[in-house]
C-alpha cells in the first residue's frame, strides 16, 4: 500500500477544503483561511517523516535496537532464546546470528535471512528516538559508521540487509511503501539540506494509515 500523501487536491476530493473555506467565511475577523492544518501542517508531512516512518518500521527497528538485544516480528517482541548482541554485533559463541540466519529467507522454518545478518552497532540504535533524534543519528558520522550523507543514501539504496525489509519472507510485513519511494524521500531530504525536524514528532505508518 501507499501511505497517504496529504495534498490540497486530495482534500478537495473529500470536501475538506471546501469545509475549511466555509468555516473561514463565517468567521468575520478571521485571517485568510489557512489550509495548513489539513494540508501541510501536520509534522508528519515534513520531508523527513516519510523516511522516519520506514526507519521506525519493525523490519528496520528490530535490528537497530538501542540496547543489546534484537526484537522480532511485527509486534517487536524480544527475540526468542534470549538472543544477544555479542561483542561484534553478530551474537555470542554458539548463538551467532549466522547459526540460524542464512543469506536468504528460509520460509519453511520461517527464519528470515539476508547476507551478513547482524545487529546494527549500538551507536546506530534508533529505539526511543523521535524524528529529530533519528535525523541527527543519520547525520552524525560519530554514530553512523563514519558515513557521509551520500554513503547513508547508498546504504539505504543498496545494502542487502536494508533491501530485505521489502522482502522479509513468510510471516512478516514488508515495509509498506515501495523501496524506490523511500529512497526518493531520503534523497529529497538530503538534497534539501538534511534539516532535522523539530523535536517531539514520532512518525509511524500507524499514524499515517
Amino acid at each position: 500500500m501507499k501511505f497517504p500523501v496529504r495534498t490540497p487536491a486530495a482534500l478537495v476530493g473529500t470536501g475538506v477544503l471546501a469545509l475549511l473555506a466555509g468555516l473561514a467565511a463565517c468567521a468575520s475577523d478571521a485571517e485568510a483561511p489557512r489550509p495548513v492544518a489539513a494540508t501541510e501542517g501536520a509534522p508528519s508531512d515534513a520531508p523527513f517523516a516519510a523516511v522516519a516512518r520506514v526507519l521506525r518500521h519493525p523490519r528496520c527497528l528490530n535490528c537497530h535496537p538501542s540496547g543489546d538485544a534484537p526484537r522480532v516480528g511485527d509486534d517487536r517482541r524480544p527475540h526468542e532464546m534470549n538472543v544477544a548482541r555479542g561483542p561484534d554485533g553478530h551474537g555470542v559463541p554458539a548463538m551467532r546470528c549466522a547459526s540460524c540466519h542464512l543469506p536468504e529467507n528460509q520460509d519453511l522454518a520461517r527464519v528470515p535471512g539476508a547476507p551478513n545478518w547482524h545487529l546494527a552497532p549500538r551507536s546506530m540504535g534508533w529505539e526511543g528516538l523521535d524524528d529529530h533524534g533519528l535525523a541527527e543519528a543519520l547525520k552524525d558520522e560519530a554514530r553512523n559508521g563514519g558515513r557521509t550523507m551520500a554513503e547513508v543514501l547508498h546504504h539505504m539504496e543498496q545494502d542487502p540487509l536494508v533491501l530485505w525489509g521489502w522482502d522479509p519472507g513468510a510471516g512478516r510485513e514488508a515495509i509498506p511503501v515501495p523501496h524506490a519511494e523511500f529512497v526518493a524521500a531520503l534523497r529529497t531530504w538530503i538534497d534539501g539540506g538534511a534539516v532535522s525536524p523539530p523535536p517531539g514528532t514520532t512518525s509511524t505508518f500507524e499514524e499515517a494509515r
Binding site: N82, V92, P93, A94
Partner: peptide, 18 residues
C-alpha cells in the same frame, strides 16, 4: 572453542538456544 573460561552468564547466553 571461543571462550576457554566462560562464566555462568556467558554459558547461559551461549546455551539459551538449546
Amino acid at each position: 572453542s571461543a571462550d576457554a573460561s566462560p562464566d555462568d552468564a556467558t554459558i547461559d547466553g551461549a546455551m539459551s538456544g538449546n
